[in-house]
């Protein structure tokens, strides 16, 4: 229990300044990238940049880099469970084949069936 306290680490303002500048540059990058047609990779790039930004905030602004292992474990557990929620639900949708053998996504199909919706 007591070893946690020794890890109180004071991050100097210069580090914060470097981080905020990086974050602003990345914000510009993500806006710029959105105006380039990358097809389906637009979303991948956008999420990758957002993840980098979030990671910087967590590691430095939130001091996770200097926190005990337990805090890091909690963060990883949170990400893992979020991935479970998203991934396992999507595992249903992306493998779905309806009773007529139509593969998902079926946005067009649902539109043809208004009567059945009651």
């Amino acid at each position: 229990m007591s070893e946690q306290e020794h890890s109180e680490h004071i991050v100097p303002p210069s580090t914060y300044l470097a981080i905020i500048l990086t974050l602003l540059v990345l914000t510009g990058t993500t806006v710029g990238a959105a105006f380039v047609n990358l097809g389906r990779f637009n979303i991948v790039v956008a999420l990758a940049i957002a993840t980098v930004k979030a990671t910087l905030v967590v590691l430095f602004f939130m001091h996770a880099k200097y926190s005990p292992k337990r805090t890091k474990l909690i963060i990883l557990a949170g990400i893992f469970w979020l991935a479970l929620l998203l991934g396992m639900t999507l595992s249903d949708y992306i493998t779905r084949v309806d009773y007529r053998g139509v593969r998902f996504p079926i946005s067009q199909v649902t539109q043809q069936l208004p009567a059945q919706r009651g």
Binding site: S91, T95, R96, Y99
Partner: peptide
Amino acid sequence: TGQSTYAALA
């Protein structure tokens, strides 16, 4: 409920 058979298996 009409969920994917493959997901149901898993």
